[in-house]
Simulated assay, not measured.
Amino acid sequence: MNRPELADFLHHARTRLDPADVGLAAGARRRTPGLRREEVASLAGMSADYYTRLEQSRGPRPSRQMLTAMARALRLTEDERDHLFHLAGEEPPRREVTSTHVRPGLLLVLDRLHDTPALVTTDYGEVLAQNALSRALSGDVLARPPRERNLLRRYFLDPSARDLFPPEDRPAHTRDHVANLRAVAAARPADPVLAALVAELLAGSEEFARLWADHEVAVRRATVKRFLHPAVGLLELDCEVLLNADTHQQLVVHTARPGTASHERLQLLRVVGLQDMTPSRS
């Protein structure tokens, strides 16, 4: 681990970012350019003291999970992320067909969507990034352990994950999840992550196994989804799915039609939901 070079790289990556670049308010006038250390730490899900020690060349060797979180918080490109791993004495993640590194430009789009819930996922349900309103709607997925960040795994293996949807809508959601995963798995039969996820769900969920045997295939596209939120009630939202074919990542955006009750409730969620009133869910 090259502590001085790592510290210098983190410092320069931090100072080149403006608060607006990561969805933060500028606040009072800043004496120095870039983000504050505590802001980077918050975005990466670590303590400010831990991050400060890294920038001061006296921190412990970061884990691979922590390096990935810092790369995302600092909006690093894939090349910059690999450099960060090398400085920490770690081998960078393999650049597989399905990338879990969200491009800085896509994160910038996500951060600018202040008034609508939006998140970035892989096409097999792994959550890679959320904006603030998405966390208010469905919980902070990235705060969970890594194995609990896949929406399909939680949906089929954790019964509480379905509480977010009205009971009458759940059968359709269930079939849609299975049909989409079958289409994705068939398109990339050599992807070990996909194969492992399918095998786990087949072994752990009789419902999934039964529906998988039906061989329904349907790629996830635009639809209307209803959410049951404990603070603001029922929300009927248009769901748009924008797929990046190169990385197999998708930007999922939920919008409410102006003039509807759901639009008013979504505006209310911006107020009450961002005060940590939403329980963690998928």
Results as ranks from 00 to 15, higher is better:
Pro171Lys: 04
Leu6Trp: 08
Glu126Val: 01
Val241Ile: 12
Glu168Met: 08
His173Trp: 13
Gln267Met: 05
Pro19Trp: 03
Ala132Val: 05
Thr255Phe: 06
Leu251Ile: 08
Asn150Ser: 01
Leu237Thr: 01
Thr223Cys: 15
Asp123Met: 13
Arg135Met: 12
Gly259Ser: 02
Ser99Thr: 10
Asp246His: 12
Glu240Arg: 13
Gly204Phe: 04
Ala161Pro: 04
Arg81His: 10
Gly125Tyr: 01
Gln267Pro: 00
Met277His: 13
Ala256His: 05
Asn180Gln: 08
Ser262Pro: 05
Tyr124Arg: 07
Ala195Asn: 11
Asp238Cys: 02
Pro189Asn: 06
Thr77Phe: 04
Pro60Leu: 05
Arg61His: 06
Ala44Ile: 09
Gln267Ala: 14
Ser57His: 11
Trp212Glu: 08
Val109Ala: 10
Leu35Trp: 02
Ser160Arg: 14
Asp191Gln: 09
Leu10Cys: 13
Leu151Arg: 09
Arg170Met: 07
Ala183Asp: 10
Arg75Glu: 06
Arg170Val: 15
Arg95Ser: 14
Val217Arg: 15
Glu168His: 14
Leu43Met: 10
Ala218Met: 11
Pro159Met: 08
Thr32Ala: 15
Ser47Trp: 02
Leu274Cys: 09
Arg36Ala: 08
Arg281Leu: 13
Glu78Cys: 01
Pro230Ala: 10
Arg75Cys: 03
Gln275Asn: 11
Asp176Leu: 13
Leu164Pro: 01
Phe227Pro: 03
Pro146Lys: 03
Val219Lys: 14
Pro92Val: 07
Lys225Phe: 07
Leu211Ile: 14
Val102Phe: 07
